[in-house]
Nucleic acid binder design. Structure first.
Lengths: 330, 330
DNA sequence: TTGTACGCGTTATCAA
DNA sequence: TTGATAACGCGTACAA
């Protein structure tokens, strides 16, 4: 494989000049630049990344550690991050922690070992430990969920308010016993959505009952079981607030299995506006989170911090938007 | 940040011994190993990846370049690759080419620059050029679509046969004018699905008509337009074979917009068994591709080739499975 | 079994 | 503006 000195001898210059020419330093004779570029092309020269990163003590790479690659919310974030990063010459490596603290820990180690410029992550839980990153002063931006412990740039959605509005919407539609299927305890978004739900009930002078609330993993099977449990009760809920789209699949499945029609029999609002939401019958009312924008904002914050480690940490909170469809209409 | 010589002095040994101890070489006194490990832990030592990769001339990293992160088919492949790679100590970096030849090209360059051990990719089109990888003898495994030019390990689904069976299923259900919405020309899976569709019509002594076929990008909006065009004709199709799940969303949307009910009015079979397929009304008949298994097989092939570059190239073809649901029932 | 010393390919410093 | 050279941190050949 061609190295920088191969290019240097072919162009009849020193390696230093090749390096300067290829990195666009302004202090190089234009004619030499042309010769270097030609030589590099002829040899199919590609710089050796590890050597460059070793020398520079940093790679033009951002790590994005997300909790679940199969969740469209997180893949949309990924696209936002990529679009911003690529524009300024950074690559993004996507790591799937799979809602698994051990995998997450492993990817944090990989990010450190590879000396990436910065890390964007959605922590799997409040147990997430970023001390290793902080100790090495690798910039970290949290998305979707805040990081425990250290102050860091954070991009969130006002999901508590969104959950409140969604619940108020159900109340306004005439549903009276609203249930909530949310994520595991220890995950901030799960807590916030539940809190927003309770805010709305309290504001309407309803006493929330724990019999109407279930916590489960953020996936379909758990939500399916949870919905069945709620609906099997003597006084079942007449509406459900569901905390993400995978869970919506489980919950809607449970309704179908019980012969209940969303909207008419049980009102349903779920978080995340997935492409198929408008397609089910009746179409699903959702809380649309600005996932792509979370990604772009996070990437901008991270790049800013890479260039200035002393910037004070900020928290950006984006608004979600309720999209009313048939599943919350009797 | 702690280096290997920090660990060495703390443990009272040489850097060579630290290296050997940490890499599990058998020729080290067990007591020294213990001291080294203790020192490394105390210092929070993490090896410098770039330095290690520079020295080793290779990184324990696989690149996975997929055509679309937002397509569940590809994210399932990614999980398969990850699970196999992690088991043997390799990391996976996921790159989203976004069905875009330029991004794909860029990620190939990144893979070369970072000197990854190997690349798994689903080529965006027959124009994909992997010469740069081949020239540097970086092992490549193609998934979903074959690579043009060079013989390489390849993991495919027998999608032509699957399309034929899906079409025969529609014929057996009594549909008589079957249309096909497939992907762009130049993409092998798009061609194969169309070919399988035509195989079935020919076997049934039907003359396929180009008026029943549309090609479009593998996304919902294109498929939506295509389905509208097909259905607006004087003699519209009474069934549709749709080439992936994103396109299914567009096509089902078109049916809804025209007040047509899947199954009863227009039979529908789509590729890829997505979680919501069973949830729409009527449930969607699909061709389930073994995506996760594609990933595991591809990773195994790649790792085998990393260890033995002389292995002959193989092509593995996996079978797809038709899952009959309501959308192909009158 | 352990230590010394070199080189991987690049960039940055310094001198010319 | 250019070139010689040192240094980044690690693994290993070789010597002890």
């Amino acid at each position: 494989m061609a190295t920088i000195s191969d290019v240097a001898s072919r162009a009849g210059v020193s390696t230093a000049t090749v390096s300067r020419a290829l990195n666009g330093k302004s202090t190089v004779d234009p004619e030499l630049v042309a010769r270097v570029i030609a030589a590099a092309r002829e040899l199919g020269y590609q710089p050796n990344g590890p050597a460059r990163n070793l020398r520079r003590q940093e790679a033009a790479v951002l790590a994005l550690i997300i909790s679940d690659v199969e969740n469209p919310f997180f893949t949309a974030i990924a696209r936002g991050v990529e679009d911003v990063a690529h524009k300024v010459g950074y690559s993004v490596v996507l790591c799937n922690a799979d809602e698994n603290a051990a995998k997450e820990r492993r990817y944090i180690d990989v990010a450190i070992q590879e000396r990436v410029a910065g890390v964007i992550m959605s922590p799997t839980s409040t147990a997430t430990n970023i001390d290793p990153l902080v100790n090495r002063s690798t910039p970290v931006v949290a998305v979707d969920r805040p990081l425990p412990g250290h102050p860091s740039d954070t991009v969130l959605v006002d999901t508590r308010l969104a959950a409140r509005e969604a619940t108020e919407h159900l109340l306004a539609r005439g549903y009276r016993r609203i249930g909530c299927v949310t994520g595991p305890s220890g995950v901030r978004t799960a807590e916030d959505r539940l809190a927003g739900y309770r805010d709305a009930l309290r504001a309407a002078n309803q006493r929330g009952s724990t019999r109407l609330v279930r916590r489960t993993e953020f996936r379909a099977p758990g939500a399916n079981r949870a919905a069945h449990e709620l609906l099997a009760q003597p006084e079942p809920p007449d509406a459900l607030l569901v905390a993400n789209s995978a869970m919506a699949i489980g919950a809607l499945g449970a309704l179908a299995e019980r012969g209940l029609r969303p909207g008419r029999d049980v009102g349903v609002v779920a978080f995340d506006d997935v492409p198929w939401a408008a397609l089910v019958d009746p179409p699903l009312t959702v809380v649309a989170q600005p996932a792509y924008e979370i990604g772009t904002v996070a990437a901008q914050l991270l790049l800013a911090r890479v260039n200035d480690g002393a910037r004070p940490a900020t928290t950006t909170t984006l608004a979600a938007r309720l999209i009313e469809r048939g599943s919350s209409h009797r």
